[in-house]
């Protein structure tokens, strides 16, 4: 499809309004920088992390519970942010953990976004029973919070995936679980906008001259909803990262041998009372910083994309 108008328009918007609003908002700049630093650190974790926490042959259990910046009593090893209960360098586990959290978050949101946009476009454009069925499914889905849906999907996955592959599949199951529980918001926004656009004269005209519905939807309807979709997506990213942490807390997340930030927090909270604060504190702060930055960006983006609020 030779559609250059959409990115062009978005780009111009970015160039003028959005960038201006960004420059004017110190909070947006700070959160943008924080988010960028965490994302980059996670992407390049293998290059910058002091150790590879996934490589069991490099671990020494006796390093366990080494406090930050202090040598271990048995091994003499020292770690900037301390070592966790398995003797892993906390800094490295955070870098690798953020990688997994971000991967799960981005993939889940992308999955939800694609699913929600398709469902919303189809429901809004076709109307009738298709719309009724899709929206009833959305209603049912909304009655179950994401955590519950994810637990259900884990249950289904358990039935289908052979035990030997559950570990490797865990991360994909997590993505599907969080994504599936999150598509409704996208679908509703897109459906609403589609129904508004559908009744406009230019769409009616295009339909009369035989432009395919898919083309109408992608070319005329979709660009109009990209703003809200982007906002929902950004806030959804923060929610997805937190959902992953909560699922890991309930014990259905990624395995502890390849921890995400959520798994690290689950492990760390066991040591809240015993004085090994660094195992909980540093992953929790990273998660907080990441989710907060993404939330603030989403917030700012919504205001920026809604000219009436400026």
């Amino acid at each position: 499809m030779s559609d250059t108008r959409t990115p062009g328009r978005l780009f111009r918007m970015w160039d003028n309004d959005i960038a201006y609003s960004f420059r004017k908002s110190p909070l947006a700049i700070v959160s943008g920088v924080v988010a960028l630093v965490i994302v980059l650190a996670a992407v390049f974790a293998p290059l910058i992390a002091p150790t590879n926490p996934y490589d069991p042959s490099g671990l020494n259990l006796m390093d366990g519970f080494t406090p930050p910046m202090a040598p271990n009593a048995f091994t003499g090893n020292s770690f900037v942010l301390g070592a966790d209960n398995q003797g892993r360098d906390v800094l490295s586990t955070i870098l690798y953990g953020a990688r997994i959290s971000l991967f799960v978050g981005f993939s889940a949101v992308l999955f939800a976004m694609v699913l929600g946009i398709v469902a919303g476009l189809v429901a809004g454009y076709r109307g009738g029973w298709v719309d009724a069925v899709l929206m009833r499914i959305a209603d049912v889905q909304l009655s179950f919070p994401s955590i519950l849906i994810a637990l259900l999907i884990f249950g289904v996955a358990r039935g289908f995936i052979p035990p030997s592959q559950r570990e490797t599949m865990a991360i994909w199951v997590l993505i599907v679980a969080i994504g599936l529980s999150d598509w409704v918001q996208f679908a509703r926004v897109v459906r609403g906008a589609t129904m508004v656009e559908k009744s406009k004269e230019y769409v009616q005209a295009a339909r009369v001259i035989g432009v395919s519905p898919a083309r109408i939807l992608l070319r005329h309807v979709l660009p109009n909803v990209m703003g809200p979709v982007l906002v929902i997506g950004t806030i959804g990213l923060a929610l997805a990262i937190i959902a992953e942490a909560t699922l890991s807390f309930l014990g259905v997340g990624v395995p502890p041998t390849q921890p995400s930030l959520g798994t690290l927090i689950r492990i760390g909270q066991q040591y809240l009372f015993s004085g090994e604060w660094w195992i909980l504190l540093f992953p929790a702060l990273t998660l907080l910083a990441l989710a907060l930055a993404v939330n603030l960006l989403g917030d700012w983006l919504r205001d920026a994309l809604n000219p009436r609020l400026r």
């Binding site: 069991p56 042959s57 259990l61 398995q86 035990p163 570990e167 014990g251 502890p256 041998t257």
Partner: peptide, 25 residues
């Protein structure tokens, strides 16, 4: 229980044996 298994996965890693930990309720 889970931490013991995890520690042993690490020890096995040192002798060239790769254990995939499956811990559940």
């Amino acid at each position: 229980d889970e931490a013991i298994c995890q520690a042993y996965v690490g020890m096995l890693g040192r002798i060239g044996v790769e254990a995939n930990l499956v811990s559940q309720t």
